[in-house]
Design a protein around this nucleic acid. Structure first.
Lengths: 200, 200
DNA sequence: TCAAAAGTCAAACATTTGTTCTATTTTTAC
DNA sequence: GTAAAAATAGAACAAATGTTTGACTTTTGA
């Protein structure tokens, strides 16, 4: 590697670290002081090269306007809801226990603001590989396709089941022979389970 | 809410959005232009208040030195390994297919650099709620406790099983009556399964 | 090795940007 | 409603930060 290419690396690393620590990028002089370059002009030339090479973007004459064009891992951010109280919207402030983040690629292309998570209670879906205590990530929607796993409100309680609908009759099927399907009235679909996370 | 408190909110929101979009914070003048304040001095007073209230940190006389003291959600970052080639270290560059991120709270307090993920193949752990295609998050370690779920190398292939050890005899137990336990020689523990993620 | 190219340096400059000051207007609280 | 407090505005200032220029030194590549 050329000597100057090493310097380019050093400068890029310094910018990354500085930005991470400070919340804003360094100035040319701060860079010069930290990569063993006494000339501000040299710094500028390196930054021009870094920009040309696509590692950063700058805005002329603006201070600290180094924008790292980093390839961040895309994530989604969603709340974990606790007890779902009757009558309240699921995503009501009071229900939210914490917020979590996971890579978008783990759940498919859903809108951030329509996702939430729910801790699964009971073993009624155990044959679908959903255990007591698992975290279900749910996409809010009013209907799901037959055979999909849905979160539904049954008599003011949230439940996770396979969803089926024949001629306007809704039934929720457990994945456990010990339980009976739930049929009929007072069932409203809240969302579709798009992922399961289990801490072991 | 007082009128000035609303303005404080507006300014904070603008800073957050600007920083997210640009990679660096706005100047006082950019703020003033975007929150309907014609006086730079007013901006400064609001920023002083925001700092006093703990929302931001500033460094005197530094340009664009607004540091948002956001409460970020802690995450861990780990690679997904594909085929594990014989003889190679699991985390070898060639094995890594992508990198993922999830909230730390989803897996417990493990060291970032010792985590990796592995796609589970087969249904030998189905009664433990681990399905074909599930992603297992693994903490690299050379030994695990009896009864824990381990990733082990058996004849140069990675497998996920319950781990048991009696008087130096290691056995790997599937969670599926259709499979037999694996015993004996040529078994080396690679890590412990700390979480399971399933995309549905 | 040697000439050309690239990198380094220092200094002066132009622009941006945070700070301070004073006067005026608006809001707040009784 | 009214006086005190708070917020706003404009301008001048001081410090910082990016840019440019030209001379010098080092590195590169045949």
């Amino acid at each position: 590697m050329k000597k100057s290419e090493q310097k380019m690396q050093d400068i890029l690393s310094f910018i990354e670290e500085y930005t991470k620590n400070s919340g804003y990028p360094p100035t040319y002089r701060e860079i010069s002081a930290n990569v063993n370059l006494k000339s501000i002009n040299s710094v500028k030339k390196y930054l021009d090269r870094l920009e040309l090479a696509g590692y950063i973007k700058k805005s002329g004459f603006k201070s600290r306007s180094i924008d790292l064009v980093k390839q961040e891992i895309p994530t989604v951010n969603f709340p974990v809801v606790g007890r779902v109280a009757a009558g309240q919207p699921i995503l009501a402030e009071q229900n939210i226990e914490e917020r979590l983040v996971i890579s978008s690629s783990l759940i498919g292309n859903y809108d951030d603001s329509l996702l939430f998570a729910l801790k699964v209670r009971g073993d009624s879906m155990i044959d679908a590989g959903i255990n007591d205590g698992d975290l279900a990530i749910v996409h809010s929607q009013n209907t799901v396709e037959n055979g999909e796993i849905a979160v539904a409100m049954v008599e003011d309680k949230a439940t996770v089941k396979y969803f089926y609908k024949n001629e306007d009759k809704i039934s929720l099927h457990p994945a456990n022979p010990l339980y009976q399907p739930i049929e009929g009235k007072n069932i409203s679909v809240v969302g579709k389970v798009v992922a399961i996370i289990r801490k072991i």
